[in-house]
Simulated assay, not measured.
Amino acid sequence: MKTTTLLILGCTIMSLSSCSSYTRIGDLTGISNRNLDDSQQYVMLEREVEAVATAENDALEQAVDTMTKEHEGEFLRNVKIYVKSNGKKVKVIGDVWGIQKTAVNVNTNANATIELKIGDNVVFDRRGTITDGKIIGLNANGVIVEYGKRKKKIELRYDDVTKTE
């Protein structure tokens, strides 16, 4: 009798806990709800952003729209998609890409102003080594720099990069 009660209790707890968790349904290289313009140069605007949407239908579309609108982007790359077991709630995690609209002016302590923009060459300290890179994105927190032979990407604070020419 005790074993039957424990077995039923265990099954109930497992079924309830599985209802509240997300199931990973896939990884995508890119996803968009808009037409992309081949003449534009797209840059990464934000890394590893998350959006959750609940709907009777089109929850995935709503989550993608939420992410692109919030970060003023056009599409997502390196996307992970999760769904609740009932299929009505979707979570999307990915990098937001779009058109960089502005350059950033950084004021230094010496009252000099340095303008950073997409395509500028910079150097930064990477594990004790000075590393060359190229700015591929700007956001409120810092710059996104691409570096190395494998084109790795890293987000750095404005104070951590030095513009080179």
Rank of each mutant, 00 (worst) to 15 (best):
K2Y: 09
K2H: 09
T4Y: 15
T5G: 02
I8P: 04
I8G: 03
L9T: 15
T12A: 13
M14V: 15
S15G: 01
S17P: 06
S21F: 14
Y22W: 08
R24L: 10
I25Q: 02
D27Y: 10
T29S: 12
G30N: 15
I31N: 05
R34K: 15
D37T: 05
Q40F: 11
Q41P: 00
E46I: 02
E50Q: 10
V52E: 10
E56N: 12
N57I: 15
N57T: 15
E61N: 13
A63F: 10
D65N: 12
E70R: 07
H71V: 00
G73V: 00
F75C: 01
N78S: 05
K80E: 08
K80M: 10
K80C: 05
K91E: 09
K91Q: 15
D95P: 02
V96N: 04
G98F: 01
I99G: 04
T102F: 11
T102R: 10
T102M: 08
N109C: 07
A110T: 14
T113P: 02
I118W: 08
V122C: 07
V123C: 03
F124Y: 09
D125F: 05
R126Y: 09
R126D: 05
R127V: 05
G128Y: 02
I136Q: 01
G137I: 01
L138S: 04
I144G: 02
V145S: 01
E146L: 03
Y147E: 05
G148D: 02
E155T: 12
L156I: 09
Y158A: 05
Y158K: 08
D160H: 12
D160C: 06
V161K: 03
T162E: 13
T164H: 03
E165V: 11
